Amino acid sequence: MHEEERVGTETPVTVELLLASPRARYVGRPADGPEPSSGRETHDRVEIRAGLGVVGDRYFGRPAHRQASVTVFAAESLETVARLLGSGPLDAAATRRNVVLRGTDVDALRGETFSLDTGEGPVVFRAHRAANPCAWMDVVLAPGAFRALRGRGGVRCEPLTSGALSLGPAVLRVRSADSAEPVAGV
């Protein structure tokens, strides 16, 4: 979809995964393996706070991460990587992205203001930069995943409004960064 086709559009999507991890698990050398989980990391519903991120996540309220506190990723990107690598299904939670969507080109959102509404009202985000993959992807997903995810690792976003996101059907609304026309929920 070209940018001009996305501006002011409503796209039905599905929220397939919501992750709020209280601590980083990919520390040190990838060859040593990830740190163990310190509790539940995937959720049916998460709270988002404007300018702070996902409540309960390791990057919540961290000044260095304010414009990158929420990472959004496309489920289709992981399927493409699995196909390229000839592997079986890959675990979306292993990417450590907060929100995994199905039904839109998430990487094309970079530079855009968009909202997600899962039924409790829209949560507005500004997609600032790519969420580049790291060498850990070769360990936790499959050999070659680090390279295969380049250009399809999702986007790092800043939440502009507070609200909640839940698993299941959602509506994505996009407004171009230079558009003066407001879009409902954006």
Rank of each mutant, 00 (worst) to 15 (best):
residue 6 R to G: 05
residue 6 R to F: 02
residue 7 V to M: 05
residue 13 V to W: 06
residue 13 V to E: 09
residue 19 L to K: 13
residue 21 S to N: 13
residue 23 R to V: 01
residue 28 G to Y: 10
residue 28 G to R: 14
residue 29 R to M: 00
residue 30 P to L: 03
residue 31 A to F: 09
residue 31 A to L: 12
residue 34 P to V: 03
residue 35 E to S: 02
residue 38 S to K: 15
residue 39 G to L: 03
residue 39 G to N: 05
residue 40 R to I: 01
residue 40 R to C: 02
residue 40 R to T: 02
residue 41 E to V: 02
residue 42 T to L: 14
residue 42 T to I: 09
residue 45 R to H: 06
residue 49 R to Q: 06
residue 49 R to C: 01
residue 51 G to A: 08
residue 52 L to A: 11
residue 52 L to S: 13
residue 62 R to V: 01
residue 66 R to H: 12
residue 67 Q to S: 08
residue 67 Q to F: 00
residue 68 A to D: 03
residue 68 A to Q: 08
residue 68 A to H: 07
residue 73 F to K: 04
residue 74 A to D: 09
residue 76 E to N: 12
residue 76 E to M: 04
residue 77 S to K: 14
residue 83 R to K: 12
residue 84 L to Q: 11
residue 85 L to P: 11
residue 86 G to F: 11
residue 89 P to D: 15
residue 89 P to T: 15
residue 90 L to N: 09
residue 91 D to H: 15
residue 93 A to I: 01
residue 94 A to E: 13
residue 95 T to V: 00
residue 97 R to V: 00
residue 97 R to P: 01
residue 98 N to A: 00
residue 99 V to L: 02
residue 106 V to C: 06
residue 106 V to R: 12
residue 107 D to L: 00
residue 108 A to S: 05
residue 112 E to T: 15
residue 114 F to D: 02
residue 121 G to Y: 14
residue 122 P to S: 06
residue 122 P to Q: 10
residue 123 V to E: 05
residue 124 V to S: 08
residue 125 F to R: 15
residue 126 R to G: 00
residue 128 H to D: 07
residue 129 R to Q: 03
residue 131 A to L: 02
residue 131 A to G: 07
residue 134 C to P: 09
residue 136 W to A: 01
residue 136 W to V: 00
residue 136 W to G: 01
residue 137 M to E: 04
residue 138 D to I: 05
residue 143 P to I: 05
residue 144 G to W: 11
residue 145 A to M: 07
residue 145 A to E: 11
residue 145 A to Y: 05
residue 154 G to N: 10
residue 155 V to D: 11
residue 159 P to S: 05
residue 160 L to F: 04
residue 161 T to S: 05
residue 162 S to I: 00
residue 163 G to N: 12
residue 163 G to R: 15
residue 164 A to G: 06
residue 166 S to M: 03
residue 169 P to I: 13
residue 176 S to V: 07
residue 176 S to K: 14
residue 178 D to A: 07
residue 178 D to M: 11
residue 180 A to V: 04
residue 181 E to V: 02
